[in-house]
């Protein structure tokens, strides 16, 4: 093992990576050292890289209207920094400063994309682990965001007893490639995905998942919309309104857990349900679908994290200023 490979495996993100993948990762990361007080990246800059902190501590601060700075997070060794860079044309939403001397691995998003474009198995593992990290972060920010705005819902949502229909009232296949989640899917990717998942249509005001058996399913909205609500202190609060080509349930799906969220259809809604029990199929590097699916899933998670981060910044602002 080279000294650089030794550095890479020190980071928990790359733990237990097969040797051949470790070599690939080593080629696309560079070791960077930052003295205490040094800026790793600046708010507002175009973002193009992700940092894996090997040693040291970084603080993430956002400048808010009025010029004050609020601390969004403090990240220690073993953590990821700047992962929103993987969103297209993303500008840094905060400034990262080394609180102590930092040693970190820097990965350029273009290098990761190149691996991905060539269906390299290492990139599938990286994206899957990234998905889990993002899912965990979103879980944490959801907790913090619980009381940001007056959007609590006092009326508990009632489960609708109307009939759930398997299938759709239109030819779904003709529309998938026009929806954001499937933008990069080929025809064969879509065929493979439809063979794994189930299309269903739920009436307005249905609670999804529709049964205990679907608890860890991941859903993609095909037509219509849903809203997600999370249980806060005493009340439910709305977290998202999701339209065609967006996902929900992916956090539980990735982490194999169950959150306190409730999802309700806002209109008659057609969904693609991907069973949690088939999760492993999306880790097959022989299947091109695995790559496209993870790419879209990561994009979806990053967008949600981006929104939550902004809300969190405003919340921190009001806390700091009393």
């Amino acid at each position: 093992m080279t000294s650089k490979e030794h550095s890479v495996v020190q980071h928990p993100f790359f733990l237990n990576l097969p040797t051949e993948h470790l070599q690939v990762v080593t080629r696309i990361v560079e070791t960077r050292h930052f003295p205490s007080g040094k800026t790793l990246f600046q708010q507002g800059q175009l973002a193009n890289s992700v940092y894996f902190i090997l040693e040291g501590r970084a603080s993430l601060n956002a400048k808010i209207p009025g010029g004050a700075e609020v601390n969004l997070a403090t990240l220690d060794n073993g953590e990821l920094l700047g992962e929103l860079a993987l969103l297209p044309n993303h500008r840094r939403s905060a400034t990262a400063i080394a609180e102590t001397p930092i040693t970190a691995l820097r990965m350029d998003k273009n290098d990761l994309s190149a691996l991905y474009a060539h269906y390299h198995p290492a990139s599938l593992i990286i994206m899957h682990r990234l998905g889990k990290t993002l899912a965990h972060r979103i879980q944490c920010t959801h907790r913090d965001a619980a009381h940001i705005r007056g959007d609590q819902c006092e009326t508990p949502m009632q489960k609708c007893d109307s009939e759930i229909v398997t299938g759709a009232e239109f030819d779904v296949r003709n529309f998938l490639s026009t929806l954001p989640f499937f933008n990069r899917f080929s025809d064969s990717n879509i065929t493979d995905l439809l063979s794994i998942g189930t299309i269903m249509t739920v009436p307005k005001n249905s609670i999804v998942p529709i049964s205990e058996n679907n608890q860890n399913d991941c859903y993609v909205v095909i037509r219509g919309a849903v809203e997600t609500r999370l249980h806060g202190k005493d009340l439910y609060y709305q977290t998202e309104v999701l339209g065609p080509g967006t996902t929900f349930g992916e956090i539980d799906w990735l982490l194999d857990c169950s959150t306190a969220s409730i999802v309700r259809s806002l209109s008659r809604t057609t969904l693609l349900s991907l069973p949690g029990s088939h999760r492993e199929q999306f880790m097959d590097p022989q299947l091109h679908l695995s790559f496209r699916f993870h790419e879209s899933l990561i994009h979806s998670l990053l967008s949600k994290l981006d929104i939550q981060t902004r809300r969190f910044a405003r919340r921190q602002q009001s806390l700091q200023l009393g």
């Binding site: 009232e169 239109f170 003709n174 529309f175 490639s177 026009t178 909205v221 037509r223 219509g224 919309a225 309104v241 339209g243 065609p244 806002l266 209109s267 008659r268 809604t269």
Partner: peptide, 9 residues
């Protein structure tokens, strides 16, 4: 929201 015309992609 999200309800598009299903006759023409």
């Amino acid at each position: 929201f999200g309800c598009y015309d299903t006759s023409n992609p």
